[in-house]
Design a protein around this nucleic acid. Structure first.
Lengths: 363, 363
DNA sequence: TGAGCTATTGCATTCGAATGCAATATTAGG
DNA sequence: CCTAATATTGCATTCGAATGCAATAGCTCA
C-alpha cells in the first residue's frame, strides 16, 4: 500500500487534510472526477510528477512512472483537456464551419478523420444558409479553438478578425481575390468553362443555367463561369433559373423551363449535382423526355449519387479528398507556425464523361 | 479616459505593475487574448464585476454594466469558455459519435441545430466502422463533455463507464435489451416485419436479404426481423447476402444473386436504402430487368434519395427528425438532472409505398 | 570516499472565469 | 438626518494541469 505522501495542494486546509487521512485513502469523493492530485496521492508522488508522466519526454524515472501508471489505471484517470488547454493555450480543437452539410457529407467525413489522425478534434458548426455565419463566429472565439476550417463564406471583416486574433483559418472552396486568406479550392470557373466548351463543341446552342442559393459564392462563380464562356462563344440563348441546391429545386427549375415561353433549351447547366439529378428525373419521369437525346443535363461536384447508373451524370468532379487533406495540412502547419504566409491552393476539377449529356466524338 | 483601477491580480509582481503603468494603458499585449482582467482594468472595475456582467441575473448596477460593456466592445472581449468550463464543470459541449456519417447526413444536421438551439456545441467523432469506438472513448472523457449522443454501438462495459462517471449518454437507434441505457429508436424489427408481411401478402414467395456490415447491430435487427417473420410465414426460400451498407455493395449483392444457383428471388430485402438503390440500378441497367415487374426491391431508412423518382423506393421511413429531437431533449434533461431514470423511447417507422416493389391491392 | 555531474522530484505559480463572503454604497423609511 | 435594509462591489479562492526553478537523489570518476 502506498504511503500517503504529503503533497496536498499548497497549504491545504488542515481540516481537509485530516479528513483525507481519517478516511485513510485516496479514493476521490464519489461522482467527482479523478484528478492528477488523486493519482499523485495514491501513488505517493507530487502532482507535477503525474503531469510529467503524460508529457512526451517528461523527466520521470522508470520506477516512478511505473508507480504512477499503476495508480492511473487503478483510478481510471484521464487528464482533463480543458484544464490543460487553459495553461498550454492549445485546445486541440478545430472548428469546422460547413454549409450544406446534407449535400456534402463526404467532406465532413474526410475532415474528421484527417484531423483526428493528428490528435485534433472537430467542433462542428453547421449552417443551413451561409448567411448565418454571424451567429457562430463569437462562439468559435469563445471556445479557443486552435484553428478553423470553413466551408462557408465569411465577410472580409470576419476574416480580418481571425487574423488579428491569430487564429489560423483555412477555406475550402471559397476563394477571396482581394484578401490574403488561406484557401484550398477547386477551380470552379475553369471547370465550368471547360464543361460549357464541351457542350458547345458537341453542338448545343440553347442553354439554361440553374443557380444555387443567392448567398452562395460558389454558385455565383460556377454560374458566371458558364454564362461568360457562353457569351464568349457567341451564344446568347441562355436562360437563368434560380435554384436552392437541392433535388426539388432542380425539378422545379426544369418544370419552369418547360412551362416558360420558348420551350426547353438543348442543355441545362446546373450549379451542382443534386439539382442536375432533379432535372433529369423531372425530364424523364414527368415530361417523358429522353436524356441525353432530347435534353442534355450537366452538374458540378461529382457527388457519389452522380455516378449512380440511373444518372451517370456529366459533371466536374472536385478532388475533394485531396482538397481536404491539403486544407488539413495547411491548417496544421499554420497552427505550428502562425507566421507562415497566407497561401492559396487551387485544384482542377476533372470532367466526368457520363451519359447525361451529348458530348460528341470523345465518347 | 478611465482611470487605471488598482485591480491587478492579487500581489502582482511590482515589475509587471510598473510596466503596465508605464505604457499607461489597458491594451493587452499584442497577440494575447483579451481577458476579463483586461476589461476590468479598462473599465476601472474588478474582474468579478466583469464576470457578473456575463451571468444571467448577475448583480451589477446599470451604470457599471454600461461601463463594462463599453470596454467589452472596445477591446473585443469574449469570455473564455475553457476557463469557464473549468470552474463551472460545464463545457456546454456534447460529444456526438456517429457511424456511417456519409449515409445519414441529415441526422447530424438535425443534431447540430437541435443542440445549438440550447447553447450547446457538438464535438464530433465520426467512425468508419462501429468497432472503432474504443479509440475515441478516452478522448471524449478527456474533453469533459456534458453529455454524449451515440449513433454507434458501445459495449456494456463502456456504457457502464459513462454511468459511473455520471456522463449522460443517449443512443439513437441502438437498443440494449439488458442494459438500462437511454435510447431513442425506430422499431427496426417491427418495421421489417410489416414490410415483409406486405411483400408476402402481395404474393412474393422467394426472397433474398442483403445485410449491412457484420458489426452493425441495426443491420442485425433488421435482418433478423425479416428472416424470422418469413420463417413464421412458412417461407424458407431465403438467401442471405452480406453487404456493406453502400451503393456498390447493393449492386454486388444483386450480381451475386443473379450469378448464383437458383436464379433471382422474387423480392430483395435490403438492410438500408443505399443498398436497395444499388440493387435497383444493377437490376435495371446491367441485367435489363424491370423493377418491380420482374423483381421487387425494398430498403429501410427513408433517406432523401429513396424518394427520387428514378427509384421511388418501398421502404420504412424512420421519423429521424422526431427521433433526433427526442434524443436531444432526453439528453438535455439528464444533463440538468443526472438522477433521472434511464428511459427508452421507441418510434414506429412508416411504410413508404413506392413503386420499387409490388405491394398488391393497396396501390 | 568525495567532488562534480546529471537525472529526478517537488514547490509554487500560472492560465481565465466564477463565486462565497465581507465590505461598501445606495435607498427607503421614519 | 439617521438607521436599517438592500443592492453593488471587490477580495480571495477555486477549478486541474503544466512548468520554471530550486532542491535532492543518484551516479561517475578520480
Amino acid at each position: 500500500m502506498p504511503k500517503a505522501a504529503n503533497t496536498g495542494k499548497k497549504a491545504a486546509k488542515p481540516a481537509k487534510q485530516t479528513t483525507a487521512k481519517a478516511t485513510a485513502d485516496f479514493t476521490p469523493e464519489a461522482g467527482r472526477r479523478v484528478t492528477s492530485y488523486d493519482v499523485a496521492r495514491y501513488a505517493g508522488v507530487s502532482q507535477s510528477a503525474v503531469s510529467r508522466c503524460f508529457k512526451e519526454g517528461g523527466s520521470v524515472s522508470p520506477k516512478t512512472r511505473d508507480k504512477i501508471m499503476k495508480a492511473v489505471r487503478k483510478l481510471g484517470y484521464q487528464p482533463n483537456a480543458i484544464a490543460r488547454g487553459l495553461i498550454t493555450r492549445r485546445s486541440n480543437m478545430v472548428a469546422v464551419i460547413i454549409a450544406n452539410l446534407r449535400f456534402y457529407p463526404e467532406t465532413l467525413a474526410y475532415l474528421t478523420s484527417g484531423l483526428n489522425a493528428s490528435g485534433n478534434h472537430v467542433l462542428l458548426f453547421s449552417l443551413d444558409h451561409e448567411s448565418e455565419v454571424d451567429r457562430i463566429i463569437d462562439q468559435i472565439w469563445q471556445y479557443g479553438v486552435d484553428g478553423v476550417i470553413a466551408g462557408a463564406h465569411l465577410s472580409k471583416k470576419q476574416i480580418e478578425l481571425f487574423d488579428q486574433r491569430k487564429i489560423p483559418l483555412v477555406f475550402i472552396n471559397r476563394l477571396y481575390r482581394d484578401i490574403a486568406a488561406n484557401s484550398v479550392c477547386c477551380d470552379q470557373v475553369e471547370g465550368e468553362r471547360i464543361l460549357v466548351d464541351r457542350l458547345v463543341a458537341a453542338g448545343h446552342r440553347s442553354f439554361a443555367v440553374v443557380t444555387g442559393p443567392s448567398d452562395s459564392v460558389v454558385s455565383q462563380q460556377r454560374i458566371s463561369g458558364a454564362v461568360e464562356r457562353l457569351a464568349d462563344l457567341g451564344i446568347n440563348d441562355v436562360r437563368v433559373i434560380e435554384g436552392e441546391y437541392d433535388y426539388d429545386s432542380g425539378r422545379r427549375a426544369l418544370r419552369e423551363l418547360a412551362d416558360g415561353a420558348g420551350g426547353l433549351p438543348q442543355a441545362v447547366v446546373c450549379a451542382n449535382d443534386m439539382m442536375a439529378i432533379g432535372c433529369m428525373d423531372e425530364a424523364r419521369h414527368q415530361l417523358g423526355l429522353r436524356v441525353p437525346e432530347d435534353l442534355s443535363v450537366v452538374g458540378f461536384d461529382g457527388v457519389m449519387q452522380a455516378a449512380w447508373s440511373s444518372y451517370d451524370l456529366v459533371t466536374v468532379r472536385q478532388p475533394m479528398q485531396n482538397m481536404v487533406e491539403a486544407a488539413v495540412s495547411m491548417l496544421l502547419s499554420r497552427i505550428e507556425r502562425p507566421d507562415l504566409a497566407p497561401e492559396k491552393r487551387m485544384f482542377s476539377g476533372e470532367i466526368v464523361e457520363g451519359c447525361s449529356a451529348r458530348l460528341g466524338t470523345s465518347r
